[in-house]
Nucleic acid binder design. Structure first.
Lengths: 108, 108
DNA sequence: CAAACATACAACCATCTAGTTGTACGTTGT
DNA sequence: ACAACGTACAACTAGATGGTTGTATGTTTG
């Protein structure tokens, strides 16, 4: 599994930094899909898509459950939210800057 | 120079997928810093930090303004917000899935 | 003017990444 | 039993990435 917060962030953002993976994530957030069903949507080999799914799984953005011979992939919305909250924290840093600027203006 | 939404998303997430760049972004969201001042914080060459700043700049996450011989870098909170809104759209996709599941349950 | 400073960028290198093909193995259906 | 299906993974390749050092250019200071 993935270690610290920074490692988690690395994995999250790296997983999201590829348009094929973002598209796969959209599909599996909308509903369960087998790896083969996902692979049918893209102009690349099954193995390539399977690796993208593995990257998303390793980042915790999707989970798989076995059903017979298929692996059904499903998006984890909680993980998506936790990425969003990392960005919210960045915005909070910015708010601190604005607050400091306002203080300076008032002191004049 | 005209990039699509997907190219922008690629650049955003790739820029954020490195912990040094996330740390630089935190600093420049908190306030302006020269490239040299930023470089002093990290255990790597000035050139390496300068390249990280360039990646963030190309992604639109920070801007620079010249002041004398220094370049002062400043974080762009609007860009951070637009990344966050991409994630919100993913969450919306997931809400659609839940709505569909609820409809199925009601039809039973 | 010369020296020191701040920045940008080229060239290079090791490693990672995203794709490929091929193989192996469990599951399903005939 | 066996053929077809669904998946995983290894080995390989081209190109991207993150780091290095060295050089060039503009700016400030003595």
């Amino acid at each position: 599994m993935i270690e610290g917060d920074e490692d988690r962030a690395d994995a999250f953002f790296h997983a999201l930094a590829d348009r094929t993976r973002r598209d796969i994530l959209r599909r599996v957030l909308a509903g369960e899909h087998s790896v083969t069903a996902l692979a049918a949507s893209y102009d690349m080999s099954f193995a390539a898509v399977q690796k993208h799914v593995a990257v998303l799984e390793r980042a915790g953005l999707l989970t798989k459950r076995r059903q017979g011979r298929e692996q059904l992939a499903s998006g984890d919305v909680e993980a998506v939210r936790s990425v969003a909250s990392m960005l919210d924290e960045l915005e909070e840093v910015w708010r601190g800057r604005i607050a400091r600027i306002d203080t300076l203006i008032q002191e004049e």
